[in-house]
């Protein structure tokens, strides 16, 4: 494992911890998109189908368990916890899951490396992860006051994706690998979706202003 990959995973872990911290400690999920969280739960559930049958490393299994556990517990908090769920902006979080899930699934059926159940589900999870942040970005744009933790959560998620791209560049030059078009292109699309957010994030940080995305 190279340094970019490790830094990427740690950033991803940090993003999840920031979100859980907000929800668990402040008992608020204001500004957090349940749609995005449900999509992530689906992403991990379909990607880690082989978690108990294909062992890679303790690190790998542990991280998979953390991402599965955290994504499902965030969804549970937002839907079921009697205090947390009251702070959910249901009226603002209107993005339709199916508009993302269905095209990703159809695309995975057509463009995959091998037409097997596990491989199609794995490819589907890559496509879906690429666009899963969209409901969250739409919600951020509608929310006038983005609190610090929500802003940091999205920033860390975007950072994780950017570090994964560096990781692939590194792997391309150091390992004997195929050109992994599916992983690369979906990863690139995913990272580009954050470009706009990053711009405004750095802008507000530089000017010491509250983060606000233009309508």
């Amino acid at each position: 494992m190279n340094i970019f990959r490790l830094a990427g995973d740690m950033t991803h872990l940090a993003s999840v911890l920031v979100l859980l911290l907000k929800i668990h400690t402040i008992k608020s999920c204001a500004g957090v998109s349940l749609k995005t969280q449900e999509l992530y739960a689906l992403v991990f559930a379909t990607r880690y189908l082989d978690i108990f049958t294909h062992f890679i490393s303790i690190y790998n299994t542990l991280m998979k368990l953390i991402f599965l556990g955290s994504s499902f517990s965030i969804v549970w908090y937002m839907r079921r916890h009697k205090i947390v769920r009251r702070s959910y902006d249901k009226e603002q979080d209107t993005f339709r899951h199916l508009f993302l899930i269905l095209p990703c699934f159809l695309l995975a059926l057509v463009i995959n490396e091998r037409f097997t159940f596990k491989e199609v589900m794995w490819t589907f999870s890559l496509y879906l992860e690429a666009v899963a942040i969209l409901p969250q970005l739409v919600l951020l744009q509608r929310t006038r006051n983005i609190d610090n933790l929500t802003g940091q959560y999205v920033f860390l998620l975007g950072g994780y994706r950017a570090l994964y791209i560096l990781n692939w560049i590194y792997r391309y030059f150091t390992e004997q690998h195929f050109v992994h078009w599916i992983t690369w292109i979906s990863g690139l699309v995913q990272t580009l979706l954050y470009a706009d957010f990053f711009y405004y994030y750095f802008h507000s940080w530089k000017n010491n202003e509250k983060l606000q995305l233009p309508a």
């Binding site: 995973d9 790998n60 998979k64 490396e113 794995w122 195929f178």
Partner: peptide, 10 residues
């Protein structure tokens, strides 16, 4: 070689 990409990633 495993044809499927980067299965060791998260």
């Amino acid at each position: 070689t495993e044809p499927s990409a980067f299965k060791d990633e998260l």
